[in-house]
Design a protein around this nucleic acid. Sequence first.
DNA 1: CGTGGGCTTGAAGTCAGTCAACCGAAGTGG
DNA 2: CCACTTCGGTTGACTGACTTCAAGCCCACG
Lengths: 237, 237
Amino acid sequence: MQYTTNSSQQLKRKMAIPGAIISSIGDLSVLTGAKQLSLDINSKVESEEFSTHPIGIISNGVVGLQHSLNDGRRSISSLFFCDDMLDFRLSDKVSGTFVCFAPVELTLFKVEEIERLCLENPQVLDVLFKSHLKAWGDVISHSVDLARKSAVEKLASFIFECQGRCANTRQNTIHLILKRIDIADYLGLRPETLCRAFAKLRQNDLIEFDNTDHIHICNETALQKVARGGSIETLSG
Amino acid sequence: MQYTTNSSQQLKRKMAIPGAIISSIGDLSVLTGAKQLSLDINSKVESEEFSTHPIGIISNGVVGLQHSLNDGRRSISSLFFCDDMLDFRLSDKVSGTFVCFAPVELTLFKVEEIERLCLENPQVLDVLFKSHLKAWGDVISHSVDLARKSAVEKLASFIFECQGRCANTRQNTIHLILKRIDIADYLGLRPETLCRAFAKLRQNDLIEFDNTDHIHICNETALQKVARGGSIETLSG
DNA sequence: CGTGGGCTTGAAGTCAGTCAACCGAAGTGG
DNA sequence: CCACTTCGGTTGACTGACTTCAAGCCCACG
């Protein structure tokens, strides 16, 4: 893990200026206390150093909030993609740990500084509220997926989530980024079941793929239908 | 549905001053634009009138965010109890509708007014952030329940959620408020399965109940263990 | 007294989990 | 260079948990 305390000038140069929040701030000279981090894949994002800087914005990679039941069952409640905001104070409230599912770069902020920015610039406040609302909505959408959908439906839904939330995805070819086992934990499935779901979608010509991390949507409307809980029964296999 | 546009004086008198947000404001004379609503059980909270006042704080009752899949499967992604804040702009983002699971009283605010309050009083901003964080954490906790837990574990977890979030609950006797079918939809179960889960917990002397809406926790530590995914296998039945 | 809704119980069906084996790619070491 | 290991992914057979379908119970309410 690498630490850098940035001046605003450094921030401007080094960062791809992640997220609407940072870009809404405009004058980055106010962000004297921000920290930038680089994290390896599969590394836990330890919470101690975030007690002072609990607000993070991802400029690269994917972070997941991971939970373990007493007997070891693992689940991932939320994923955070590029430009998403995450709040490390969550890990106390929900007893989970943040884990990197790809090499990650993120920028950390103090709460007081964020609040000060809001007071100075109402536009920042507005963007921050919108960001909260988006994060909230993302988790809710995911819990709808978990509650009642079948394995194929969950997967179809996940594919569209990646399409919508993940930056380096273009048109109908989608970079999944995560490994099968992590997708499975995110969808509340075992990897074997997830694998069978992939196979079913492929057999029905809804998606196609050669390697595991890139898939192509062949029939978007049909896949949408599956994702929304319609007519799984027409799927063979 | 009844409408009342309140002056601050009316607010002070008529409301039980719901939530840390309102109480943090202190001087209620700023809240000239707030609206108070009374809603019947099972009524949908229609979104049209909330385009101007999308922020609500519940002073009584329970509201749920309800979703339907194409083939009619129903699920409830979030519950909002007394003093909880809800944002009606969510219903656009996640294609769900807010429904009352008990007679509800809530107070509505304009976004601009909330933002203005934040700018005038940093304490309000702080409380609002905390409120966002709590709401976020609640949904995440729920999605952990949905992902990997068995029916009994989900129920055990739900009981503690009620204990922690629901106001008129005291010690180990818990008012469930919701009907079985609504609890089932919230936990991603069928009512029959939920019923069997209740029976199992009762058979193992973890809870007891005569009528359906009040239960008593007999063995809290054991129930906690179940809720966290430990040793279901010791449960008979 | 009859009706209906909410809840419960039972029997049968289905989907996802479990366990095991296999495959291919990547990395390691002799 | 090849044997060996490891890991992620895949496939098959079997088991188990939740669903489905059906019926019955209980109490409030007309």
